[in-house]
Amino acid sequence: MSSTTTVTKPPKARPTASTVDILNNDTARIYTHIHPILVLSLYVFRFKPIVADPVPTLLNTLILLGILQVAYVSVCLPATGTASTPSVVKPGARKKPGPSKLESNVQGRIIPAFLSLLLSTMVGTPLIGIMLILFGAPLTTHFPHTFLCAAHISLLASIPLIYVHGVDGERWREIVALLLPIDEVFGAALGTFMGAWLGAVPIPLDWDREWQKWPVTIVTGAYIGFAVGKLAGGLLFKGRKISFN
């Protein structure tokens, strides 16, 4: 999927990024609302074991989260490069000779989805892990905790982003600089990060609760932020742009 976007690099006349729409079919429209419920239920279901024994449980949960996210992007979202064309298939063009439906699904959706998962785990996780440490995560201890936390944040935020936007450098600058218009994918990513940020708030409180331990609150914040951000980005703020000045 990277070939389409990285090879053709127009010097200046690139189209500015537009909002990402859900694929124009019923399954996509329904599943996009079921997905956050599934993700949250997964987390609620795994919450107690995560508190009790974070490292192995976070790892197990990560696999399930990866599956859910891959399913979500391949069912609901337009893969990178196809964003503007999914709904303009003309009625007569259906019988065109080409790859079978299954084949096109595998090539056009499943493979990009798994590539997103791979990139999100291999590139996103270390970057976010370093960010967590820079923000005050323990430097000398709790490495598995920190990086599993980073992996959860990365899978929540970056799989849909990579799937939709590819790996174009300029596009990613726009993403990081918050220059994209808000949509449900971008909103979910923003929400995940803001939730993780807010998740640090209860840590210092002297409530002596088991769940205050690293990194439970951060992961919890990220999950809630993902769901809220996805909803708000898809409905409330769709198309708006963030302005700093």
């Binding site: 820079l134 005050g136 990081v176 918050l178 210092p204 409180l205 700093f244």
Partner: peptide, 26 residues
Amino acid sequence: FTIWEDEILLHFLSTFGLFMLLSSLR
């Protein structure tokens, strides 16, 4: 929060650093 003020300030300063990074990329 008063006891852990040093860690909170670290968190805030990193956040400001991040905002400045984002702003620079714009």
